[in-house]
Amino acid sequence: MTTTPTPPTAPGIWRQPAQVWAVAFACVVAFMGIGLVDPILPAIAESLEASPVETELLFTSYLVVTGLAMLVTSWLSSRIGAKATLLIGLALVIVFALLCALSGSVDAVIGFRAGWGLGNALFISTALATIVGAASGGSAAAIVLYEAALGLGIAIGPLVGGILGEVSWRGPFFGVVALMAIAFVAIVVLLRTPNETRTPTALSAPFQALRQPALAVLAVTALFYNIGFFVLLAFSPFPLGFGAMGIGLTFFGWGVALAITSVWVAPLLLRGMRRTTAMMTVLPLLAIDLVLAGLFAANPGALVVCIIVGGLLLGVMNTILTESVMEATDQPRSVASAAYSAVRFLGGAAALTILLGRKALARVDAHRADAAEEAAAVLVGDAA
């Protein structure tokens, strides 16, 4: 009697080499940095005798430098290699987070946050390519790992910031130093890139990509959209009036909402709706949510609801923009993603841009992006 042999099963998504987990852990920490500072903004303002405007510059300096650095990260990593780029990025974050923790003035913290942004740009622009190259199970496994890291980091960041911020406003910065140091050692020890192929990228490549109309329209849209994103993230802690833990729990909910809609809701929505239609639906809803947040700013309960709803809308919009960027240009996807992200980090919120530029965006409604390349753009674009 003969039996039919059982076909070998594919490696489980969560059964990955140690080097993949090292980079994935570092990704979680990097994404935690998005909201880690949020719960301590009022405490920083009080302790360092800074105005809310001065305190908001902690985000401004970080984002401007991150955006500008995105224009050169592909050029650098294509020459020195992925591991070296990852380690330089992590080292810069460690150094500048420590300097933030030791600072005695808000101006110093603002300056050191700029250096933090440079390190983060170098790290996040390289991390997913490293995971894709080393993950078992192909690009699908790499994407799941990335999405898990993104959601976990965005959700946990404000919560950790709130817990450590209850002790001191310096606590979250010291927390980043410790976690990034562990990630640095893990990558040094575990990451192996013996067969890494380097194809130098031209320094002008991102600028050439922005000359294509569809990508330019999306970049300008993201410029304005990000104003809404960071008004909700960076300004809301002040009118809430909560302590560090209360703000941390609020933005933990915001991060969970953003992660859920980014990973699960947006793909379902796009099955029955064109991308441009989806963008012109979500952006006005986000504008309404921000208006309501302004009207109810004096009511903490209502403002919390607006923040959570905003997280739901932002998650959907992040994914739609990312998928659109994948089909917006004939340039390599990593170059298009970097160019788009560089512009996006500089700003703000608009459905009108999509409406006026809809003709140029015809190609983004007609194609579906390759999954691995889509994830690469998400990694770069969502690390604001």
Score class of each variant (00 low, 15 high):
320 I>R: 03
267 P>D: 02
286 L>T: 02
343 V>F: 10
269 L>Y: 03
354 I>H: 04
288 I>A: 13
318 N>A: 05
267 P>K: 10
334 S>K: 13
341 S>T: 15
273 M>C: 12
344 R>L: 11
282 V>W: 06
371 A>M: 08
340 Y>F: 15
340 Y>H: 15
361 L>W: 04
362 A>M: 06
321 L>Q: 15
328 A>H: 02
285 L>C: 13
354 I>G: 09
314 L>A: 14
281 T>H: 00
308 I>K: 10
340 Y>R: 03
350 A>P: 09
354 I>L: 10
305 V>Y: 11
358 R>M: 05
344 R>I: 06
337 S>Q: 13
328 A>R: 01
266 A>Q: 13
349 A>G: 10
331 Q>N: 10
303 L>G: 10
358 R>Q: 14
265 V>S: 07
365 D>W: 02
291 V>K: 03
316 V>H: 00
355 L>Q: 09
324 S>I: 08
310 G>T: 01
274 R>M: 08
279 M>G: 01
344 R>W: 06
329 T>W: 01
316 V>T: 11
294 G>H: 07
323 E>L: 14
310 G>W: 02
302 A>F: 10
359 K>Y: 06
323 E>K: 08
336 A>N: 05
341 S>H: 00
326 M>D: 10
351 A>L: 09
359 K>S: 14
333 R>D: 06
318 N>L: 11
361 L>Y: 05
360 A>E: 13
316 V>N: 01
338 A>F: 07
297 A>Y: 12
339 A>Q: 04
308 I>D: 08
316 V>A: 12
290 L>S: 01
317 M>I: 14
281 T>L: 13
371 A>S: 11
289 D>I: 11
286 L>D: 00
351 A>G: 03
274 R>A: 12
270 L>I: 01
356 L>Q: 08
339 A>T: 08
294 G>I: 14
269 L>V: 13
360 A>Q: 14
335 V>P: 03
310 G>N: 02
364 V>W: 01
352 L>T: 15
305 V>T: 14
345 F>M: 14
274 R>V: 02
269 L>S: 03
277 T>P: 00
348 G>I: 04
339 A>S: 11
311 G>H: 01
302 A>W: 11
271 R>Q: 09
337 S>V: 08
323 E>G: 00
336 A>Q: 04
271 R>F: 03
307 I>C: 06
302 A>R: 11
296 F>L: 11
281 T>M: 13
360 A>S: 14
279 M>V: 07
339 A>Y: 04
321 L>W: 03
305 V>E: 09
368 R>G: 10
370 D>V: 08
276 T>F: 08
353 T>N: 07
271 R>M: 12
310 G>E: 02
283 L>E: 09
355 L>H: 06
323 E>N: 03
271 R>E: 12
308 I>N: 08
277 T>L: 04
368 R>H: 10
362 A>Y: 02
358 R>T: 07
290 L>Y: 04
291 V>P: 04
310 G>Q: 01
335 V>G: 02
342 A>F: 08
321 L>G: 14
343 V>T: 10
278 A>Q: 00
348 G>S: 13
297 A>Q: 12
345 F>G: 09
281 T>E: 00
366 A>V: 09
347 G>M: 07
291 V>G: 07
